[in-house]
Amino acid sequence: MEIEDEAWTKAEPEAEALVWRAAQAVLDAHEDVEGQGIVILLADDDSVRALNRDFRHKDYATNVLSFPSPQDPASNPEGQIGDIALAYGVCAREAAEQGKPLAHHLQHLVAHGVLHLLGYDHEGDEEAEAMEALEREILAGLDVPDPYADDGSANLG
């Protein structure tokens, strides 16, 4: 884990522990996952914007980005699952707009990102419902309220 933007730990001193608990909760719910290496970057908006621009061709900062590792052992000898990057400014603004503690939003976005690394998506309604159900279950185990309960939107891009 790398904390690039110290605003994360200023706003949420337990950020690192919260991130690892959320990531591990997803992995624990998927016992069939081989390898558990995940790199998580707590970054600023500019860094996430650059990643989003360079890898997804979308020139804006977003809350969380997930980059699955190749599953080919020759290309991925360490068995890494992938990388996740979170933008502090976007996440903090969303948490405030949604009336949620940053800690809860952070754990939700980490769980969401790890699920993407494991192949889950939310492009179609059926996929979105399945992914959201898993998120709710995992977050409930972390004592994080249902992120979709109020308005059905958790601003996940």
Rank of each mutant, 00 (worst) to 15 (best):
A23K: 03
A23P: 01
A23F: 05
A25C: 10
A25P: 03
V26S: 01
V26R: 00
L27W: 03
L27I: 10
D28V: 10
D28T: 11
A29E: 08
A29V: 07
H30F: 08
H30K: 08
E31R: 12
D32T: 09
V33S: 08
V33Q: 06
G35A: 04
G35V: 04
Q36H: 13
Q36S: 13
I38A: 01
I38W: 00
V39F: 15
V39L: 14
I40M: 06
I40W: 00
L41F: 13
A43L: 02
A43Q: 10
A43V: 01
A43K: 07
D45M: 02
D45P: 09
D46F: 14
D46C: 06
S47W: 15
V48G: 03
V48M: 01
R49F: 06
R49S: 07
A50N: 14
A50F: 14
L51P: 00
L51Y: 11
L51N: 03
N52K: 06
N52H: 15
R53F: 12
D54I: 03
F55S: 11
F55D: 09
H57K: 13
H57D: 11
K58D: 10
D59P: 09
Y60Q: 12
Y60H: 12
A61Q: 02
A61Y: 00
L65A: 00
S66H: 01
S66D: 00
P68K: 01
P70N: 11
P70H: 13
Q71Y: 10
D72C: 07
D72L: 08
P73K: 04
P73L: 03
A74I: 11
A74L: 15
A74P: 08
N76Y: 05
G79W: 06
Q80T: 10
Q80W: 15
G82A: 04
G82I: 01
D83C: 13
D83E: 11
I84F: 04
A85F: 14
A85S: 13
L86F: 01
A87R: 00
A87D: 09
Y88F: 15
G89W: 00
G89D: 08
V90W: 00
V90N: 06
C91Y: 04
C91D: 09
A92M: 05
A92F: 08
R93Q: 11
R93C: 11
R93H: 13
E94H: 15
A95K: 05
A95R: 05
A96R: 13
E97W: 03
E97T: 09
K100D: 12
K100M: 13
K100V: 10
P101D: 15
P101V: 06
L102N: 05
L102R: 09
A103K: 09
H104D: 14
H105E: 12
L106D: 02
Q107R: 14
Q107T: 08
H108S: 09
H108Q: 10
L109D: 07
V110C: 03
G113C: 08
V114P: 04
L115W: 01
H116C: 04
L117P: 09
L117S: 02
L118I: 08
G119C: 07
Y120W: 12
Y120E: 01
D121L: 06
H122Y: 08
H122R: 03
G124A: 14
G124P: 03
D125H: 12
D125F: 14
E126I: 14
E126F: 12
E126A: 15
E127T: 10
E129M: 14
E129C: 09
M131G: 02
